[in-house]
Nucleic acid binder design. Structure first.
Lengths: 264, 264
DNA sequence: CGAGAGGTTGAATAAAGTCAACAAACGTGG
DNA sequence: CCACGTTTGTTGACTTTATTCAACCTCTCG
């Protein structure tokens, strides 16, 4: 299970470990020791690559959390993604040979370096590597399409709800709890990612907490009703919610998410 | 310049023609006649592929205009892109082996078929083909990132302005006029693409027309002040515009875009 | 020529953003 | 360990932006 081994004070991974990390089925016959990829560690806040920097390597996240951002003409950050274990970074640099986004570590990180030249050269020998690349790039493309769909069509509440569900799924996929986890990013970063202001994110989380869909304590999120979050499109107006809560309280009962959402 | 030749009642293109179309520098030595890719024609309104359909081929647009869309759980279309000459379709199908979006012809179209199996097989022989694939996929990824940035950060007016500028650039790149062109899509489709309602798109175009940035006549758009459109972030409030227009009128002059935008 | 799709415009409404005050957590150095 | 300033998060009041609903117009194409 230990992806990578110590050598010369650094970690290295072989091709099989890389494929496993990317969830790409690999039928590598010879797990040759020649095919080793170096690890690099980054501390919280460090930049992995910046916009415009010459592209030469891709990165795979082995551990830790990051954000990728665009910087617009007047310095405003637009968060594009929150890569974590198994995600690939730097693909946007292939086309122009310069990174078009910036990647920043949100926690201490361990990344695997994939020098692009080496990768394409190896791709001709180990053809699962080539298929891996196509698969990963296509997957990223689909993810971005989903993001565009979300930004184009969903309300603030639906965006936050989906964000939480997606995060929960990713944590589950990594073997962590999908019911209770810590956000690694600020409200501002979430807002930027979702095309909302940090206040709207904060208010929406509070509203979800109020009606019992989640519990919120700073960056600790508890998922209480994943199903409701998945299908949520719009919250009932707050006066309706207040009325329902009051009614429930007067009967000395806790209002259930189901009751509240029925008012939609 | 004629990309494709008649044969058995259909058109075929060789690798060099495909590369040229994609704007990928190709140094193919042997323009072997073995390496031919078939064309297919679609009429306006026809579907190239649908969501969930098994993936096996990529498409390159040789002529015509299309849209790609996602369909959400309750049948609403979300437009993802408006592919035209030189763009590639179907890349989203690689990952899951099923197309994740739907492509529809907005005009009569001529597309080149790239069977994916054949493509990857050839990629091992002609390595510029492999590089082409990486380049095209990375380019598409960067385009989608820009889209996310736009949807996340820009006002309705800025989105419409950028949309027009981008279209103009693409037309110019194809050898058409960047100053005067026809939209191939409805206001509804533009709105969906930009995350706006059709009414907002219509009003914004009218406002741009009113202050002289563009001329609008149904689907015919004339670009009058490309620079202003490129840098536009927000329009001055309409009462200010009304005042300025009235002031200009009283002096018997036409209000210039510069005057109006100075009020920002 | 008439039906239907596409487009424009206005008035009312709802959603999200802005501005501002405050509170809680963090981290650094005394 | 505590005091401090800084960053992050919450909440309220108000404003702005874009949507919704509706009426109406205008092309296009059977």
């Amino acid at each position: 299970m230990e992806a990578g081994r110590q050598r010369q004070g650094r970690l290295w991974s072989n091709l099989k470990e890389v494929c496993d990390l990317l969830h790409i089925p690999s039928a590598v016959s010879v797990t040759t020791e020649e095919l080793l990829f170096q690890h690099v560690q980054f501390k919280t806040g460090q930049r992995i690559h910046t916009i415009g920097q010459p592209f030469d390597t891709l990165y795979i996240v082995n551990s830790g959390f990051l954000k990728t951002v665009l910087i617009d003409e007047f310095g405003n950050e637009q968060v594009l993604s929150f890569p974590m274990k198994g995600d690939m970074l730097g693909v946007d640099g292939i086309h122009t040979r310069h990174y078009s986004s910036e990647a920043v570590a949100l926690s201490d990180c361990d990344l695997i370096l994939l020098p692009f030249k080496k990768l394409t050269a190896l791709g001709r020998v180990h053809l699962e590597l080539e298929n891996m690349m196509y698969g990963v790039m296509s997957r990223e493309l689909v993810r971005e399409q989903a993001m565009i769909g979300m930004l184009g069509a969903l309300s603030a509440e639906a965006r936050v709800a989906r964000f939480l569900v997606t995060l929960a799924d990713r944590f589950a996929h990594m073997g962590y709890s999908a019911k209770l986890f810590n956000l690694r990013m600020t409200r501002h970063e979430i807002g930027s990612y979702l095309g909302l202001t940090l206040e709207t994110v904060s208010r929406t989380l509070s509203a979800f907490n109020e009606i019992g869909l989640i519990s919120v304590d700073q960056r600790t999120i508890g998922i209480k009703d994943a199903e409701a979050l998945k299908t949520l499109r719009r919250l009932p107006p707050s006066r309706t919610r207040a009325k329902q809560l009051a009614a429930a309280k007067s009967k000395n009962e806790a209002a259930t998410p189901a009751q509240l959402l029925a008012a939609m």
